[in-house]
Structures are given as structure tokens and as C-alpha cells.
Computed example of a mutant assay.
Amino acid sequence: NLLLKAQTKIECIAMNFCDDLITLSKTNDIDLVAKHFEPGDIRNYSAIISATNDESLNTLVSKVAHESGIPVNVVDSPDLSSFIMPSIVDRSPVVIAISSAGRAPVLARIIRAKLETIIPSAYGELAEIAGQYREKVKRRFNNIKERRKFWEGAFSGVIAEKVFSGRSQEAKKELEKRLVETKDEGLGEVYLVGAGPGDPDLLTFKALRLMQQADVVLYDRLVSKGVLELVRRDAEMVYVGKKGGESSHQVEINKLMVDLVNSGQRVCRLKGGDPFIFGRGG
């Protein structure tokens, strides 16, 4: 069904076909070829999937496909496959793929099931609306940081909530209003975020959101590698540790934050533990 949804032309080679497949072939672009597989059956396909319980046949299909330079997936046999079929969370045009690299497909399906329950189907509609307004937003905001900030507000505020509640037309009107009313802000922001004892699983949702929003992250040696991995990939990372010759005095750190904010940057001061104890939050 997923292949048909992608408008794929499918050819099935087997001696027998199940009733469901026969039914699908009557109304879809599926050719059923009733014969034993032979190496000469592999032609100029875009991809091949071998789903038999015959290990020797699966090995033969894999061998011929590899020799022909055609991507092949052998179900439940990652060693014979050149690509993996991930579990899919489909919120088209937003699509999330979950793969265990063939090591634990059941676990991938369980993760998919959990994601299905927490990601509203309306995310697809939200993405479609964003696509309709993408060029307008690009014309309204000259640099990428301003555009990113605008979209972050749209995707996490009133506009998104209107889409989720089925009021897409109201969401579009609100988006048009924001494009007219939004002013270029000269000053940035500072977020004081506590990284806790170092376990990424103990971060709050708000801490994670602010880490993903920041343009610049100031961190020290007490912040674990696992926590730093959750910072936005393109954020500038500035080490301001206080150990030996690498130390930065607090006055210098404060001045750096002020300078960054005055330049319009969103700054995350990431501290190990509680930021109001270790980060001079008072």
C-alpha cells in the first residue's frame, strides 16, 4: 500500500498470490506474473523487494540485484539488503522514518506507534500552509535568522493551534496578519538553562525547546556530551568553562552575552545543575 501511495508501478513474481494482492491488482498499477523466479527476470527496476521464506531464493535475488546495481531489500535479512524499509509516520508532506538498521524491526514499529499517538495528523496541513507562504515570508524577511524566528512562532503558537482545531482559513488570516505586523527586532534574548545532572532524559521540554531555538550556546565543562548533542545543529557553540587556563571570568561572560543580544542573537547560557545556583541566576 505504501508503494502504491507513492504512485509506484509494481511487478510481482510468484507462483501463487493472496486474495488481497489479487484484489489490489484489479484497481491499481500492479502486474502479477505467475512463474518461478529466474535471474533473467531482473530487468531495469528502480528497486527490488524479496519477501519469500526460501533462504536460497532470497540469496539469489540479492546476488543478482547487487550485480545489476539495483537497490534490493530482503525482508528480515539486512545482510542481504542494500537498503532498509523503515517504519513510517506519514503526515504528508511531513514524513518521519524510523529504522533500526534491520536489527530490531519490531522495536521500530513500537516507536512508530508511540509517535503516531503524539503527532497530530494536522501537521501535514500545517506544512502545506507553510509551503504556500514560504516565498512571501522570504520576501518579508531578508535573513534566515528572522525567517526562522517567524516560523518558530507560527509553528508553536496560535497559528498552529488553529490548524490543529480544523480552522485552517483562520490560521492563514493570522499568518497574513503576522507578516504585516511583525517588526524586525533589534535586540535578541538570553535563556538561562539548567542541564541538570547530565542525563539528557531529565531535561524539561522547555529547556529542550530553548536549546533548539538558540543561535549561540555558551556552555561549560559540567554540561554532558549527551546534552550538547540536543542543541540545534547550526547553533554557534562557545565554551566558557572555568577550569585552569581555559577559564572565562563571569564579567567577561556577561559582557559576551550582552554583546550577542545587542546584535540580535538568541543566546542560551547552558549550565550544569540548577542555573539559579550555578549560573548566578539571581
Rank of each mutant, 00 (worst) to 15 (best):
P105Q: 12
L208V: 00
L230Q: 04
G186Q: 13
K183D: 07
V193D: 01
I10A: 08
S121K: 14
I96F: 01
Q265G: 02
D259Q: 13
A65K: 15
E38S: 11
F278E: 05
R266Q: 10
L175M: 15
V261D: 02
I129T: 06
K172L: 02
A154D: 02
S56W: 03
C12M: 09
S81C: 13
K183C: 05
I30A: 07
I10M: 06
I84P: 05
A113F: 03
E185G: 11
P39H: 07
F83P: 05
P86A: 06
H66Y: 14
T52K: 10
L260M: 08
M15I: 08
C12G: 07
T59S: 15
E11S: 14
D90H: 02
I277C: 09
L270Q: 07
A51L: 13
N44H: 12
N262L: 11
D201P: 00
E67L: 10
R167P: 01
S263L: 14
R103S: 15
S168H: 03
A130N: 08
D215H: 12
E236D: 12
H66R: 09
L187K: 13
S50K: 14
A171T: 09
L270H: 07
K9A: 13
R209P: 01
G194P: 04
L179E: 04
K162C: 05
I277K: 13
V33R: 07
N58I: 06
S156K: 02
D199K: 03
V227R: 01
P200G: 03
I110M: 13
H36D: 12
A104N: 10
T182V: 11
T204S: 02
P71F: 05
L175D: 04
E125T: 15
V267F: 01
V74N: 14
L256S: 09
K255I: 06
R139C: 12
N142I: 12
E116N: 03
S56P: 02
G40K: 15
K63Q: 11
K242G: 08
P105T: 12
G124C: 00
I49E: 11
G226F: 03
D41W: 03
D31A: 09
R178L: 13
S156E: 02
G69K: 10
G264Y: 04
E174F: 03
E236A: 15
I30V: 07
A235Y: 00
D199S: 05
S77G: 04
I10P: 12
K243Q: 07
A6H: 04
P275C: 09
I111N: 02
P200K: 05
R167A: 06
V106I: 15
L260G: 01
F155N: 13
D274F: 04
K145W: 02
R221S: 09
E189W: 03
L4Y: 08
G198H: 06
E174Q: 10
D79H: 11
M211D: 03
E181G: 08
L210A: 02
D54A: 12
L126T: 01
V251G: 14
K35V: 06
G102H: 11
V74M: 12
R112F: 00
G131E: 00
Q265C: 06
T182C: 14
V240I: 14
A108F: 06
D220N: 11
